[in-house]
Simulated scan of single mutants.
Amino acid sequence: MSELTKRILILLCLIFITSPSNAKTLTFAVVPQQSAKKMAQKWQPLIDYLSKYTGHTIEFRTAKDIPTFEANVSAGLYDIAYMNPYHFVVFNDSVGYRSLAHQRDKKIRGLIVVHQDSPVQSLADLNGAEIAFPAPAAFAATIITSAHLRKQGIAFIPRYVKSHDSVYLSVQRNFFKAGGGILRTLNISPDSVKSDLRVLWESKGYTPHAIATHPKMAEVDRQAILNALIALSNDSSKASILSRIGFSGFVASSDSDWDDVRALGIASLSRPHL
């Protein structure tokens, strides 16, 4: 055996020994609150961090719109998914997705926004108006805001425009009198759009979006991902990764954390458009 062959064999052995035998490829899907390009730009640094920390290859996923995302989660296509509170309640029950973490020190609130120069000063001024929403099953932006309007006896025509960004842009351009959203997506919208909008109404707070895992995911892999999320949350040198998605950090969660959403009874009244 030549010296070169020996060296090649030694190198191959070292690669085999040092390569993680349990490395996997996992998908991490994020509900499409913005365009796919913007979502990837904001979330990819977090995905890269999780891949490096866990030793797994984690691939970013989203969908062209919220109904498509719902259909994919319903089919169990994602290993990990960041989904709204309503989605989690539904898919925890129907598919078995298990909660892993949620945003730290955060409650999700629905907003109704109008143009800064709009004459609308109260919800009553929206009676009979067309109002923009991201999708029928967007929890805070659609379900909570719509429920409050109906409770107040305000008639309106819902128009679904596929994303939070589209809601804000359509109100800013005066295509609609008002739109439903949430504070986080409003805060990270372009200044040119955000500066032209005014928050007309804000709901009370609910447990925020869940990071949930497929029911077949091994507990050791769930724990590895959770450890990575907690480590990131406690590492000030990596704060920019979290700030890109508008988070301060993550905390571990249990399925019962979303009992406040279950108490609304909405999961038993309707299902996402699949």
Rank of each mutant, 00 (worst) to 15 (best):
V199M: 05
L186P: 05
R150K: 14
G179S: 09
L226T: 03
A135I: 04
V113W: 05
A224V: 09
V251C: 10
T18M: 07
G265D: 08
A224P: 06
L46K: 02
A218W: 07
A40S: 09
T57Y: 09
H214C: 10
Q116H: 03
V167Y: 01
A135P: 01
Y168R: 03
T68P: 07
K42T: 05
S51A: 15
S240T: 14
S166G: 01
L126W: 05
V90S: 04
S94F: 12
A252M: 07
L183M: 09
Y53R: 06
R61P: 02
V167P: 04
F250A: 05
A132T: 03
T145K: 06
N234A: 14
P190E: 13
P85S: 03
P134Q: 00
D259A: 08
A29R: 06
D165H: 07
K106Y: 07
Q116K: 13
V90N: 00
A252K: 07
M1G: 15
V220I: 08
R7L: 15
V113Y: 10
F60S: 06
Y78G: 00
P67N: 04
L4S: 09
S237W: 10
V251Y: 01
L274T: 02
V161P: 03
R104T: 01
M39C: 08
L11M: 15
T185H: 11
G110R: 01
I47S: 14
L126N: 08
S35Y: 09
N127A: 08
K194R: 15
K204P: 11
H87I: 00
S237P: 12
Y82E: 06
C13R: 11
S254V: 10
S233R: 10
P134M: 00
S118L: 13
I8H: 12
N127P: 12
T27E: 03
K216F: 12
R244G: 07
L200I: 11
L197K: 10
H148K: 08
A212T: 08
T54H: 02
P215G: 12
A138P: 02
R262S: 14
I211E: 03
T25K: 09
Y78S: 01
A129R: 15
A36Y: 02
A71V: 06
L123A: 12
E3Y: 06
E130G: 14
Q103A: 05
T145G: 06
Y206K: 04
T213E: 13
I108L: 11
L14M: 05
K64E: 10
N234D: 15
L200Q: 15
I144W: 04
T207A: 09
S189G: 01
F69I: 05
G265Y: 03
F69C: 08
F88L: 01
P158V: 07
N92F: 00
G181C: 07
F176A: 14
L26P: 05
Y206D: 01
I154K: 07
L123P: 13
Q41S: 13
L14I: 09
A147L: 11
A138K: 04
A239I: 13
